[in-house]
Simulated assay, not measured.
Amino acid sequence: MISRWLRLGGTAVLLGVLATGCFTERKNEGARLYKQTCANCHGEQGQGLRRLIPPLAGADYLKQHRAELPCLIRRGYKGQMVVNGVDYNQVMPGNEPLTDSQITNILNYIQTAWGNKGEVYTIREVSQQLGACNGSDGQ
């Protein structure tokens, strides 16, 4: 009986280790994708660039425009934007090659990095919001 429990316990530990290994590549995907696609403009710490590029760290815009953020990442943005009471009016390029899943990971990274305490997104939510700008790829 004891050896059976040890085998079951060992199997459970092994499955846990294997499952963890399956997800390690995706664990930091949001941070990795942010660094690749967003940090050049918004900064490594989401600080933005003076009055040219808005910050993401502590940005009131994230909460006020939650439903628009997936389309903003997919399609980009042109025109005036107010973040933390400061006017910005630069062009933000879109990221068409990103999948819905990748956009979800970027948004969740931004929502929880640099002291931000935003509500995380689900992929279903992001795909639905991307439908508003014909931007969902279903992935």
Results as ranks from 00 to 15, higher is better:
81 M>V: 10
65 H>C: 10
14 L>N: 02
124 R>Q: 12
43 G>I: 00
62 L>H: 06
102 Q>T: 01
6 L>R: 11
59 A>Y: 02
70 P>I: 06
58 G>L: 04
42 H>P: 02
14 L>D: 00
87 D>V: 14
2 I>P: 08
25 E>K: 11
1 M>T: 13
26 R>M: 09
90 Q>H: 15
96 E>N: 12
132 A>C: 01
11 T>K: 14
104 T>Q: 07
49 L>F: 02
67 A>K: 15
4 R>F: 12
127 S>H: 02
41 C>G: 13
74 R>S: 14
104 T>F: 07
139 Q>I: 12
115 G>E: 01
57 A>W: 03
56 L>R: 13
79 G>V: 06
81 M>T: 09
33 L>V: 05
37 T>K: 11
47 Q>N: 14
61 Y>H: 13
38 C>G: 13
107 L>E: 04
70 P>K: 00
132 A>N: 05
29 E>W: 06
24 T>Q: 09
112 T>V: 03
39 A>S: 15
110 I>Q: 04
55 P>R: 04
32 R>G: 03
12 A>G: 04
68 E>T: 11
112 T>I: 03
63 K>Y: 14
108 N>E: 05
12 A>R: 01
93 P>I: 08
97 P>C: 13
53 I>G: 00
118 G>W: 10
16 G>Q: 02
64 Q>G: 10
66 R>Q: 13
34 Y>D: 04
17 V>S: 05
73 I>M: 14
36 Q>P: 07
118 G>N: 11
10 G>A: 04
14 L>E: 00
54 P>E: 02
71 C>D: 00
31 A>F: 08
34 Y>V: 01
86 V>M: 11
56 L>P: 05
117 K>M: 03
116 N>G: 12
23 F>Q: 12
103 I>D: 02
138 G>Y: 07
136 S>N: 12
4 R>S: 07
18 L>M: 12
9 G>P: 08
92 M>P: 03
81 M>S: 05
113 A>F: 05
31 A>W: 08
124 R>M: 07
91 V>N: 15
15 L>A: 15
26 R>G: 06
78 K>N: 09
17 V>Y: 05
105 N>A: 15
7 R>I: 15
71 C>P: 00
127 S>C: 05
11 T>W: 14
52 L>D: 07
88 Y>C: 05
3 S>P: 09
18 L>H: 04
87 D>F: 14
127 S>E: 08
60 D>M: 07
32 R>M: 09
49 L>R: 11
48 G>K: 00
30 G>I: 01
60 D>W: 12
90 Q>D: 13
6 L>S: 10
55 P>C: 03
105 N>H: 14
77 Y>E: 05
81 M>D: 07
104 T>A: 08
56 L>M: 15
122 T>M: 12
68 E>G: 14
130 L>H: 00
138 G>V: 11
74 R>C: 04
35 K>I: 01
39 A>L: 10
86 V>H: 01
134 N>I: 03
94 G>S: 10
132 A>V: 11
33 L>C: 13
84 N>V: 01
25 E>C: 09
68 E>K: 14
72 L>P: 00
48 G>A: 00
1 M>P: 15
134 N>L: 14
108 N>Y: 01
84 N>I: 02
136 S>V: 10
13 V>W: 06
136 S>E: 09
